[in-house]
């Protein structure tokens, strides 16, 4: 009797899991359609894009070549790469230094400092665009990469992630070094940071991606076409292609490639980073 019921529950489970997999695959394929269609459009000749069929007799990559030749996309790529790298590096360095002090040192007002930093999470960056713009204007940084990068570097979340990670490392690690008279800087650089690779990866990837994808702020401070970032450049030229849909899609896909590459390279770090920072709350 008992075996019978367990078996039927077992088969019920199996069937249920099959259905789950089926529904999930259907959704996943649906989610891939826009990107697949964009690619399909991009490899058609411009004239054929009005036919709305998936099939083309004349597949060609010439649209990608035209975009690279006719627009400044390579330049935008360079600007975005420089700004995002600078921002990620700055966020990792300043965030980890501050978190080290908050996690490992004893000083007055430590809690006050921590709460002031945390309060920064509450302020949406978009609320600050007007005063930040005025500030950049008055110190003459408009139209420079610094104007884009500097406000993105001090992210409270970076401090939070690093502090969380450092707090989890056992204190015994550095006690011997401290008894030997090693400076805090040495402990930070030689003992703590080498162990903090997962936190470094999470902070670096997230600041890189969010800096790369930011539209509003670089749109405001980079009005010169020569140093636009990828999103600003794409948003600016999107109207100029008219009915050249293959070219438009080629520009979108070229804009997507760097980030898809980042995602494929760091898939595990990204997913673990989200999970780690998300669940700490």
């Amino acid at each position: 009797m008992t075996t019978m019921t367990t078996m039927s529950i077992d088969t019920r489970m199996k069937l249920f899991n099959r259905i789950c997999a089926g529904v999930l695959i259907a959704f996943a394929l649906l989610w891939l359609v826009p990107l697949a269609w964009a690619f399909d459009t991009a490899i058609k000749p411009n004239e054929e894009t009005t036919k709305t069929t998936w099939w083309t007799d004349n597949p060609t990559f010439s649209a990608f070549g035209r975009i690279i030749n006719e627009t400044d996309i390579i330049r935008w790529f360079g600007s975005s790469l420089f700004i995002a790298t600078l921002t990620a590096f700055g966020a990792v360095l300043t965030g980890s230094l501050a978190a080290f002090a908050l996690s490992r040192m004893r000083f007055r007002y430590r809690n006050v400092v921590f709460w002031v930093v945390l309060a920064g999470i509450m302020v949406p960056s978009q609320v600050l665009i007007v005063p930040q713009f005025r500030e950049m204007d008055s110190i003459g940084l408009l139209n420079t990469f610094w104007a884009v990068s500097l406000p993105q570097i001090p992210t409270a979340i970076a401090v939070f992630i690093f502090k969380q990670f450092f707090d989890g490392l056992p204190k015994e690690l550095e006690e011997v070094a401290r008894l030997d008279g090693a400076s805090f800087l040495r402990i930070y650089a030689r003992i703590i940071m080498p162990l903090a690779r997962p936190a470094v990866a999470a902070v670096a990837i997230f600041t890189f991606v969010s800096s790369w994808n930011d539209l509003l702020w670089p749109l405001l401070v980079l009005s010169n076409p020569d140093n636009m970032t990828m999103p600003v450049g794409l948003a600016t030229v999107q109207g100029t292609f008219g009915i050249r849909y293959a070219d438009t899609m080629a520009s979108a896909l070229l804009g997507a490639v760097p980030l898809v590459a980042v995602f494929l390279l760091f898939q595990r770090n990204i997913v673990e980073g989200i999970a780690g920072s998300g669940l700490k709350g």
Binding site: P34, L35, W37, A38, T41, V209, W212, N213, L215, M230, P231, V232, L234, A235, Q238, Y245, T248, M249, S251, A252, L253, G255, A256, L259, V260, V262, F263, I270
Partner: peptide
């Protein structure tokens, strides 16, 4: 992970 501009171009199409 795609920039909003890329998403917008694809969906406008």
């Amino acid at each position: 992970v795609l920039p909003s501009a890329v998403v917008a171009l694809i969906w406008m199409w």
